[in-house]
Amino acid sequence: MNPEQVEPVAVEGRIRIPYRWPAGRAAGTFLSLLAAEGRLVGLRCPTCRRVAVPPTARCNSCRAACEEQVPVGPGGSVTTWTLSRRTSPPQILALVRLDGADTALLHRLIGLKPEDVRSGMRVEAVFEKDRRGSILDLAGFRPAPAEPPSASAGKPAGGAR
């Protein structure tokens, strides 16, 4: 009996565990307003004035606690995008900088073909009718005709430093 000569086998297995992830204070604020009122907010850092969407309880730059709610969107601009081929039909994934925010939100672009997507294009949020407190209460972003409200729109976030 020589292990070098045996035909190797693999054993099928899986790991299946149910999880529940609490949204907490910052994300909970965002998701509850999204669900209840169909509106989008960011949290503003009291020190560096940066508005983060998705919001974080503490500023990633200066570590100040962030509590001031700032309305953002529903319009925004695409900073970059790609196509996910894991689904059929493929989905357009994009980073969208909502008007009034300093960071971009990852989401899907809907209602347009990949060949029509351009970085910098204006989009607007589409809300689901039945909302449950999830980022998927946003169905995605669709093309918006309006011009960017300010010259800075379309630029990506400046990073956290």
Binding site: P8, V9, E12, G13, R14, R16, W21, P22, A23
Partner: peptide, 29 residues
């Protein structure tokens, strides 16, 4: 709101665990 917002999911990850040569021999045994 009665309960704080939470996201639920039951991810299922599939694996093909190699038994290795020694393990393959054992299982055949």
């Amino acid at each position: 709101m009665s309960e704080p917002i939470a996201v639920r999911a039951t991810p299922e990850l599939h694996f093909r665990y190699a038994a290795g040569r020694y393990g393959s021999l054992f299982l055949r045994g």
